[in-house]
Amino acid sequence: MKDIDQFYNKITHGDSLEVMKTMPDESVDVVLTSPPYNLKNSTGNGMKDGRGGKWSNAALMNGYDEYNDNLPNDVYAEWQYRNLREMYRILKPDGAIFYNHKWRVQGGLIQDRSDIIRDMPVRQIIIWQRNGGINFNKGYFLPTYEVIYLIPKSKFKLAPKANRYGDVWKINQDFKNPHPAPFPFELADRVVKSTTGGVILDPFMGSGTTAVAAIAHGRKYIGIEKSEKYIKMANERIDKFKKGSIQEELNI
């Protein structure tokens, strides 16, 4: 095991599961992350529509850099569950995981991600209400929300007055971020300021939004990312934030 302070305020290049295995038990305060959704294996949205147009040009049609986002569903679910178990192991006794995912229709039936969450101690589901996307399937209404699973350890409490936010967060997507699937700064900011922990981990760091939110509130961040391209993107955004040059882009 490595000392946790070796990971502070940097993004480690590597596989999320393997890197977390090198971290000591009960060493981080908060985990905030949004993993790849395995969308290219979906049968329930426009990814496989084939009609071209706007959706055919969407960045996620090409998957992620160094990850195609197209695993067999059982393999994907097992991978994500194992990641959650590692996140939970390294949480302090008063820590919590905020795990952003998306309920999907697969084979005509909704997936509420119980295949991933399994026996994890979910305390609450937060609804992230965002703008609608594109839905070519006439069998169901246009999806306009994602979910954030709050998975705490027993001593976790919110920061003072944070419970006033409620469990439905209306926050628009980030359309200025070059990453193919970013979550907005406002969402990361709300999670960070709703907690009191000093060390924030994102094992799927992507473009660095979690790190920027941690810095904005004087916290330490730990990032893991398997794409060197996204690490470069994230570090550039972090540097710009420290210099005060992307605050307007983040609407702060």
Rank of each mutant, 00 (worst) to 15 (best):
K2E: 14
K2R: 13
D3E: 14
K10V: 07
I11L: 04
H13M: 06
L17T: 08
E18L: 14
V19M: 07
K21R: 15
T22K: 11
S27C: 15
S27D: 07
D29K: 05
P36D: 09
Y37M: 09
Y37V: 03
L39D: 11
L39N: 12
N41L: 03
S42I: 03
T43E: 03
M47L: 10
K48S: 08
G50D: 04
W55T: 10
N57D: 15
A58T: 14
N62A: 14
G63Q: 07
Y64I: 11
N70Q: 10
A77R: 09
R82N: 12
L84S: 03
E86K: 11
R89N: 08
R89F: 11
R89A: 06
I90P: 09
L91H: 08
I97W: 09
F98N: 01
Q106V: 07
Q111R: 14
D112F: 11
S114V: 02
S114P: 02
D115N: 11
M120V: 09
V122P: 01
Q124W: 09
I125D: 06
I127Y: 07
I127M: 02
I127C: 10
G133Y: 09
N135A: 03
N137I: 07
F141H: 05
L142D: 02
T144R: 02
T144C: 02
Y145A: 03
Y145S: 10
V147T: 09
I151Y: 04
I151G: 05
P152H: 10
F156W: 09
L158P: 04
P160H: 12
K161F: 13
A162F: 13
Y165K: 12
N172Q: 06
Q173A: 12
Q173N: 12
D174Y: 07
F175P: 00
P178H: 12
H179I: 10
H179M: 06
P182K: 03
P182H: 08
F185M: 04
E186P: 01
L187M: 14
L187H: 00
A188C: 13
D189L: 06
D189M: 03
D189V: 02
T196D: 03
G197A: 04
G197E: 05
G197W: 04
D202Q: 03
P203G: 01
F204V: 04
M205R: 01
G208S: 07
A211F: 08
A214V: 09
I215T: 06
H217M: 08
K220Q: 10
Y221K: 00
I222N: 00
I224F: 05
I224W: 01
E225T: 06
E225W: 10
K226Y: 12
S227Y: 10
E228C: 04
Y230I: 04
M233C: 08
A234Y: 11
N235V: 07
E236C: 06
D239H: 07
K240E: 14
F241I: 10
F241R: 01
K242T: 05
K243H: 13
S245V: 14
I246V: 15
I246D: 05
Q247G: 03
E248S: 15
L250R: 00
N251F: 08
I252N: 00
